[in-house]
């Protein structure tokens, strides 16, 4: 059992965690109960529950959001299909902005710590969450990763979710915004195929746009499709390789980070590490 919040052990593993903290109940696997009494319906009654299925995740997310806000940290949840270029984008973003503003990264993948190692090679702090068979990060895992990472005040937190355009849509992590990446080597109709994710994002980054001359990708059509589910969606075309559009992306981050810093205030002392702890 985890000594931070009493969660049961499960499949997710956070690298660098103590043996107690490292395993989380991502799966929240139920324990079985033996019932040897014969079941009769005579004493059956109806109980009103009226509870959101994701209430627990949402409570963890609210805790993360509050802790991040108190530190004036601007947090983004990066989502995309696998291979859209999330890690490459992060590496270039850290290289460009990391000197002026501390950037910490939470990496989510089913297995390997390859992505966290790519981030650490830039000098930035990163913690890898391996979700095991899980297809998305949840707010509880991220809370534990934050306890591990202890992100500094007035910095930026990038959460790179598991590459998946379906499941991560439903799980709030406590971020300020979801940023969805769609590479131009994918189809223009992806926002129509996976509308929930595009509806919940504040910004769509069309990545790998240096490849456009070699493709039949219709940029306008893709943006129109995305705005069918999200009329207010911001869109920036970027290439982490050529640098195209990156200045606009940096400016977007800069604006958010400035607001988070101002709202976080300088008056309160930095929250001690224990404040990241997730309480069940």
């Amino acid at each position: 059992m985890c000594s931070t919040c009493g969660c049961e052990t499960g499949e997710a593993v956070i690298e660098g965690g103590s043996s107690d903290h490292a395993r989380l109940h991502a799966a929240c696997m139920p324990h079985s109960h033996a019932h040897d009494d014969p079941v009769g319906h005579s004493s059956a009654r109806i109980l009103r529950i009226e509870q959101d299925i994701l209430a627990k995740n949402d409570a963890y997310a609210a805790h993360n959001r509050r802790a991040l806000a108190e530190r004036g940290i601007f947090a983004l949840n990066l989502v995309s299909a696998p291979g859209a270029g999330k890690t490459a984008l992060l590496v270039q973003t850290i290289r460009a902005l990391g000197a002026g503003c501390p950037i910490c990264v939470v990496e989510g993948d089913q297995q390997t710590s390859n992505d966290a190692e790519r981030i650490r090679a830039t000098g930035a702090r990163a913690v890898q969450i391996n979700t095991g068979k899980g297809c998305h990060l949840d707010a509880h895992m991220v809370g534990h990763a934050l306890a591990q990472l202890d992100p500094p005040r007035h910095g930026i937190l990038m959460i790179e979710n598991v590459g998946n355009l379906v499941c991560p849509a439903a799980f709030d992590l406590g971020e300020a915004h979801k940023v969805v990446l769609l590479s131009v080597t994918e189809g223009e109709d992806k926002p129509l195929k996976y509308p929930d994710m595009f509806r919940r994002a504040s910004l769509m980054l069309l990545s790998k746009i240096d490849l456009l001359p070699h493709l039949d990708f219709d940029l306008r059509c893709c943006i129109d499709n995305a705005r069918r589910t999200n009329p207010d969606l911001n869109v920036i075309g970027i290439s982490a390789r050529s640098g195209e559009g990156m200045a606009e992306w940096f400016a977007w981050i800069g604006k958010g980070a400035q607001l988070a810093r101002a709202a976080g205030g300088a008056q309160a002392p930095a929250a001690p590490l224990a404040e990241w702890s997730v309480h069940a």
């Binding site: 079941v39 009654r45 009103r48 529950i49 299925i53």
Partner: peptide, 20 residues
């Protein structure tokens, strides 16, 4: 048109149980 803002139908709730 597509200038739509979702206002309902996104809920996922447990409403009631029948139990003893």
């Amino acid at each position: 048109g597509y200038r739509l803002r979702v206002t309902g139908g996104t809920q996922m709730r447990v409403r009631e149980l029948e139990a003893e």
